[in-house]
Simulated scan of single mutants.
Amino acid sequence: MKQYTFALDLVNDPQLIMEYENFHRAIWPEIESSILEAGVTKMQIFRFEDRLFMIMEVDDSFSFEKKAHMDEHNPKVQEWEQLMWKYQSAIPGAKENEKWVLMNKIFELKK
């Protein structure tokens, strides 16, 4: 199992943040299916103020290229992503049109 972590900011507006959280409490079934079909086995999103942190666990079938290809050819995913831009704000240092930014692990404590 591989694990990836990402960061993203939200538009700093309490009403929009509440709407964003509501969408994620009941994501569209097509979005959930798309995530699972790409090889994602577990996904968690955490929020502090307007900063999001996502942990994504994947199986051996997952690749970023495969996920991008699937998303590009899925009209429902494109609709969802377009809608989410209303709430999302690219994190400082992100590339143009980049949403979730892959983070680098700098520390791990193991017993």
Rank of each mutant, 00 (worst) to 15 (best):
I35R: 01
E19F: 06
N22D: 09
N97K: 15
A90Y: 05
F46L: 13
T5Q: 08
E79I: 10
L36K: 11
H73S: 00
D13H: 15
I45V: 15
H24A: 11
K95Y: 07
K67Y: 13
F46D: 02
L52V: 10
I31K: 08
Q44E: 15
W100C: 07
V40H: 01
E57Y: 01
E19I: 06
D60N: 12
M84P: 06
H69L: 09
Q82F: 09
K42S: 14
M43A: 06
Q82Y: 06
Q44C: 09
Y87P: 06
T5L: 00
I91W: 07
S34L: 07
Q3C: 09
L10P: 03
L109Q: 06
A38N: 07
L109N: 02
A90H: 02
R47D: 07
A90P: 01
F6A: 05
I45Q: 10
T5R: 01
N22I: 00
T5E: 05
F64E: 09
N22V: 03
F62W: 15
I35V: 11
K42R: 15
E108R: 01
I31G: 05
S63Y: 08
D59E: 09
L8T: 04
M84W: 13
E98I: 02
Q78P: 13
K66P: 01
V58E: 03
K2F: 04
E30A: 15
R47A: 10
K95V: 00
K95S: 08
F62M: 11
V101K: 10
M70R: 11
Y4L: 14
E30Q: 13
N74W: 05
H69M: 06
E30L: 11
